[in-house]
Design a protein around this nucleic acid. Structure first.
Lengths: 203, 203
DNA sequence: GCGCTTAATTTGACACTGTCAAGATAAACA
DNA sequence: TGTTTATCTTGACAGTGTCAAATTAAGCGC
């Protein structure tokens, strides 16, 4: 039951409640954030009862898993498109990655929080499907940064894995400090990105 | 009433409920995390009714503010003691800071989450007292890093503020990636710290 | 169209949360 | 003593996610 048998998209009472739930929940999260997502309000929005959701998702975290998985697919594509153009010099690729990363996070703050926050991973709620999408996302980043190293201008002695972790931590940290309101001033962001760029590039 | 008049520590019914609440809540948070802190359970632990707390704290967030404020005081002291010993070369100071920062966060993960997470700042729940403790904490870090720059071995062209933000983001990002369970393997942490060190130091 | 099976959905209930309004208690003070 | 004031409790409300059991409706063989 858990492995193959398609998704039974045939229209019963509602039509396609699973899809409707996903879309409505994504909208709600983008608008009000994770903490603003209530299953009861969600059901009311769509016009079904509070517990109708439980026939399409195991529980609330299964719904969040599905939304996060969609996010990772989009995120991976965005990342590679900004930082992996081998026609450009490494410096420009790194720059594209940093600004692309930060910009994406700012455009989808709540989705970013869901994907890279504690709500799913810390509690051990990630299901197989999510892992299957999220792990390649990191691998893609690792591969990209390895190619940067081969292109020079970036510390090529460092272990690619470590370097990836640290570069990721740097952009992730900037995003989080701002997103979580610890550093309120968003106007500093571009200058911070440039500063990070200079730090990572070995001139 | 709201400004001056001391804390009225005299023993009424309970003795010093405010202090007892603070201590019990800190313990609970260290044990079960922020989400594991329930005002009702807390009251039950101490042996008072659910709403007794409201005569010592405006609401739950006021209690969290007080705990976070204590944390910032301890944190600032720790940071300076690890990274501001002018008898040591800059490289060792930076190294001390990075490892001290990460180590402190690992020893007090839940407190770190409260102080540098979204629970207080993002929602605009920080009160004046907390701001008065948290802001100098950042200033202390800024001052320290400025002294590093004057000591050489660190990019002295960069704006100290930007550099502070980026270095902070780097360690914060490493901590968060691990703490939030996005990067599960804590055994990589030391190597990541060393990698970050090499990135920041201009050899 | 009839009847059976099965998927989809609903209603009711439970335990839990933070917080407000009123009332009770006891300490402090005149 | 009586009054005031700080402290604490009881009752209630509006939320939350989720389980169990009852209900509805669709699909399918006949």
């Amino acid at each position: 039951m858990a492995t193959a048998p398609a998704k039974s998209q045939t229209a019963y009472h509602h039509g396609d409640l699973r899809k409707a739930l996903l879309e409505a929940a994504t909208l709600r999260i983008e608008r009000d954030g994770l903490e603003g997502l209530s299953l009861r309000k969600l059901a009311e929005d769509i016009g079904v009862s509070r517990t109708a959701l439980y026939h399409h998702f195991k529980d609330k975290s299964a719904l969040l898993n599905a939304i996060a998985a969609q996010g990772f697919a989009a995120w991976t594509q965005m990342t590679l498109s900004h930082g992996d153009d081998e026609g450009l010099p490494v410096r420009e690729r790194l720059r594209g990655f940093i600004f692309g990363y930060v910009d994406w996070a700012r455009r989808h703050p709540q989705l970013y929080d869901l994907m890279f926050g504690s709500s799913i991973w810390k509690k051990g709620l990630a299901d197989e499907h999510l892992k299957e999408v999220a792990y390649p996302a990191f691998q893609a980043m690792l591969g990209m940064i390895s190619r940067w190293q081969r292109g020079g201008n970036i510390n090529s002695n460092a272990d690619p894995l470590r370097l990836t972790q640290v570069i990721w931590a740097t952009v992730h940290g900037m995003v989080r400090l701002l997103m979580d309101g610890i550093y309120a001033d968003a106007t500093h962001l571009d200058a911070m990105c440039d500063c990070a760029l200079e730090l990572i590039i070995q001139a």
